[in-house]
Each structure stands twice: as C-alpha cells, then as structure tokens.
C-alpha cells in the first residue's frame, strides 16, 4: 500500500524536523517546505493527502496557501493550520477560507497525530 503524503509548511526548522520524524514513524510520507511559496510548489507537484501549514510565514502566508488551494486549484485536500497566541483573528479567517482544523502553539505532537489520523487515517 502506498504511504499517505503530507506537505508540512513551517518556517521553524526545528519543529519541522521534530514533526517529520514523528509522522514518518506513524507511516506517512513527509514533504517539508520552509515558506508558503515552497509549500504551493510541493502541493502542486506531490498532490498530498493532507496539508499542515503555519499561519505566519515569510513571503506567502498560510492564509494565502489555503486560499490558493481552495480557490485557484479547487482542491479539497484537508488542511490543519498552526497558530500562535494572539492570532485568533487569523484563525477565523483561515476557517472562512476553508481550513479544516487548527492547532494552537504550543501543542503536543501526540495530539497532532491523533487529529491527522482522524482526518485521513493511516
């Protein structure tokens, strides 16, 4: 069986590495982008089953990633966004644009795994 693909867009490289490690152990295939621009390229080339994206990123923000995905590419790939304290407004915007779930930082990687499994299974 093919592994399910996940694109992770996050500008904090340590967190990316931590999550990549963890999710690969759970049997997913990870593609890591450090900004929104790279994320969009990966999404188009890999057509992942799930997208994890930070809301605030250099160049292209998480919001723009969602809007591009839903409106330009017309894809319904599930999206989980990461947000920090004080970004409540942005989270609301993210949901309006079509995000499926959100995780407020700081979060526990275990909880993220549970939510991912709920959305796409293993």
């Amino acid at each position: 069986m093919n592994k399910k693909k996940i694109v992770l867009a996050e500008d904090n490289s340590t967190l990316s590495l931590l999550l990549k490690f963890r999710l690969e152990k759970e049997g997913y295939e990870l593609f890591v982008a450090t900004d929104g621009k790279e994320a969009l390229e990966l999404i188009e080339s890999q057509s992942p089953d799930l997208i994890l994206s930070d809301i605030m990123m250099p160049f292209v923000s998480g919001l723009e990633v969602i809007s591009h995905l839903r409106n330009k590419l017309n894809l319904s790939t599930p999206i989980i966004v990461f947000s920090s304290a004080g970004q409540e407004e942005m989270v609301l915007k993210a949901f309006n644009l079509g995000a499926n779930d959100f995780m407020g930082k700081p979060f526990s990687p275990n909880e993220l795994v549970i939510r991912i499994k709920r959305l796409i299974g293993t």
């Binding site: 340590t14 930082k105 700081p106 990687p109």
Partner: peptide, 15 residues
C-alpha cells in the same frame, strides 16, 4: 536558539 525555538512551539512533556 534551537532549544528556545522548539520550547515555544511544543507543550507538555516535550517542553
């Protein structure tokens, strides 16, 4: 800086 970057983003046992 590596430690701190991660500390901020993960909760519970990990931090």
């Amino acid at each position: 800086s590596v430690l701190y970057n991660l500390m901020n983003e993960v909760s519970g046992e990990m931090s």
